[in-house]
């Protein structure tokens, strides 16, 4: 079987495992969804009725097949605190989360990779120590606190940041929707006012969300670069008289890239977890803020749906990373 087909086929049992896990979490853990749904004070008869209506009185395997059937029909459940289906809610909010996560990922790469390279090429010099300490601190930073401090400083005190409410100034119309990403759409439609406003709204939460990933990407890039930098072909390239930037950029980085890409793939899941927190703090109208609202309203169908989505995204992104690495380094496809 070709490599791509093999990798896609290998994803199916993982996907099934993910679905079983989420099902077990909701139905087997000692919590009682019917009780939660009906409320703590509800009479036992009411709880019983809710249980019947939710199908929780059926045998466990029957519930499982019903759940899988619902998923196959694209039914992720009903969000009773907003009165709409979870799929509808997700569809309207997904672009905001994609925009924020992608922006954070781009920032993390733009900052993390150069820091890692500089650190590796100036190993054990002061700049290496500074960047290593910074990346340790960055990885230890609680996002929800960092976000609040950014708002306190850059909005509350300095006034550099627009009010942390939404994706664009409330006085402006969002750009015509093409991709759903405001920054991209306003670029495509040439709407400069919308572009400026949406960038100003995006950059702060994106920086906060990127902190942890930047730190880890810098760290992994550094150690990947250190692995290759001592090798013979790098010495050959240097002794041929190639300029240092060419040696680092074309020879070393290309061989360190698969490691960095793998970390990026793993970070994607972290970003989705971080998005929950970041969106809540910046009232960013994406999936994350919706899920925390749902949690506070003890509306758990969206939480489960988000969990499923996050795992699926993780599996798909890591598949893409493997395929990309396969192109970059064909040896990895023979493992």
């Amino acid at each position: 079987m070709p490599y791509i087909a093999r990798r896609i086929a290998a994803m199916i049992p993982a996907l099934l495992g993910v679905i079983v896990c989420i099902f077990l979490i909701t139905r087997v853990l000692p919590g009682d969804p019917a009780r939660t749904f009906a409320g703590e004070q509800a009479a036992p008869s009411v709880v019983e009725q809710v249980r019947r209506e939710m199908g929780l009185d059926r045998p466990i395997w029957e519930q499982f097949f019903r759940y899988v059937g619902d998923l196959l029909r694209g039914d992720l459940g009903f969000s009773w605190h907003t009165g709409r289906t979870v799929v509808e809610e997700f569809a309207t909010r997904l672009p905001a989360t994609i925009e924020l996560s992608l922006a954070a990922l781009v920032l993390a790469l733009l900052i993390g990779v150069p820091i890692g390279i500089i650190s590796a090429t100036r190993r054990d010099r002061p700049i290496d120590h500074v960047s290593r300490v910074l990346s340790l601190v960055g990885a230890s930073m609680p996002l929800f606190w960092l976000g609040l401090m950014v708002i306190y400083l850059f909005y509350g005190q300095l006034g550099w940041q627009p009010a942390p409410l939404g994706r664009i100034d409330s006085g402006l119309n969002p750009p015509t929707s093409i991709t759903g990403l405001y920054v991209v759409d306003s670029l495509l439609t040439g709407d400069l006012a919308a572009l400026r406003s949406s960038l100003a709204h995006l950059i702060w939460p994106a920086m906060v969300l990127a902190t942890g990933s930047t730190a880890i990407i810098a760290r992994m890039t550094r150690s990947a670069m250190l692995e290759v930098i001592d090798q013979d072909y790098i010495r050959t390239a240097r002794s041929k008289g190639l300029p240092p930037l060419t040696v680092i950029g074309k020879h070393a980085l290309k061989n360190a890239a698969p490691v960095t890409m793998t970390v990026v793939g793993l970070q994607f899941g972290q970003l989705l977890g971080g998005a929950v927190i970041t969106e809540t703090i910046f009232t960013w109208p994406g999936l994350g803020s919706y899920v925390t609202d749902a949690v506070l309203a003890t509306d758990y169908a969206p939480v489960q749906a988000f969990t499923l989505l996050a795992a699926v995204v993780y599996l798909v992104v890591n598949l893409l990373v493997d395929l990309f690495n396969g192109v970059l380094d064909p040896r990895t496809t023979h493992a």
């Binding site: 993982a14 979490i25 909701t26 899941g269 489960q304 969990t307 993780y314």
Partner: peptide, 11 residues
């Protein structure tokens, strides 16, 4: 495969 925080939230 689950982001840790998201899985912890669900549980």
């Amino acid at each position: 495969a689950f982001p840790p925080l998201v899985l912890a939230m669900a549980i």
